[in-house]
Amino acid sequence: MRLTASLCTLLAALWTAAAQAQSAPDGLSLELNRIDQIEGACRLTFLAENGLGADVEALTLETVLIDREGVVERLTLFEFGALPDGVPRVRQFDVAGLSCEALGRVLVNGVSDCVGPASCGEALGLTSRVDVELLG
């Protein structure tokens, strides 16, 4: 009976470790998760996951907002703040005067500031869950 319980505990621990290893991103992943029109602004919601193996104390990205016609609407900085290793974080940015309907692409033009591992900007993976493309 004890052997069966110990075996079950061991298998559960191995399964949990394997699941965590599969879900942890390599590098720094950034997903444009949703966009919402709010009063006078477009709210962009990002899901950030740090898989660098060390905490990022501060991250600021230079972003370019491009409309559906391919015209640059504006260049701005998004400050993501601290991103602990292995812990997903959600960050929202309200862009005043921007129509979400007109937004076509968000270009991560570069890393403006990164306090943490040297590979902050090199290991950036970008995805989007909405019909606005996130690229870099």
Rank of each mutant, 00 (worst) to 15 (best):
A41W: 06
R91Q: 13
A17Q: 13
F80N: 12
T63D: 06
G97V: 08
I66N: 00
R89G: 02
S29L: 15
R34D: 13
V71A: 09
G121I: 01
V106I: 10
L103V: 03
V115F: 10
A5E: 11
V64C: 05
V64F: 10
R105K: 11
E57Q: 13
S29K: 12
F80D: 04
A18G: 15
L10M: 11
F46V: 12
Q37H: 05
F80I: 12
L28M: 08
A18D: 10
L10T: 14
L3G: 12
A5M: 04
Q92P: 04
L75E: 14
L135V: 10
S112R: 15
A19Y: 15
G81V: 07
A123D: 10
V64W: 11
T4V: 05
G121N: 02
C114K: 05
P117W: 01
S6L: 12
A41G: 10
L75N: 14
L28G: 04
N50D: 11
T76P: 04
C120T: 06
V130L: 02
P117C: 03
G97C: 09
D26E: 12
V95H: 07
I66M: 00
F46H: 05
I35A: 07
S112A: 14
L59M: 13
F80S: 03
L77Q: 08
E62C: 00
G136R: 14
D26M: 11
V132Q: 05
R34Q: 08
V111R: 01
D26I: 05
L77N: 11
V115Y: 11
R89C: 02
V115N: 08
T127H: 04
A18F: 14
A54W: 01
G110H: 02
L103A: 03
V132M: 12
L77H: 13
C42Q: 02
V72Y: 13
V130G: 01
L77Y: 13
R43C: 05
C114G: 06
Q22N: 11
L124P: 06
T9Q: 10
L61A: 04
G104Q: 07
D113W: 09
A18H: 15
Q92V: 06
G70P: 09
A102I: 07
V56Y: 11
T16D: 08
A19N: 09
R2Q: 14
A102S: 11
N33P: 00
A58S: 13
L44D: 00
L11V: 15
L47I: 11
V56P: 06
D94A: 13
N109T: 03
A58P: 01
N33A: 15
A58R: 08
V71Q: 15
R34W: 02
P117D: 03
L32E: 00
S6P: 00
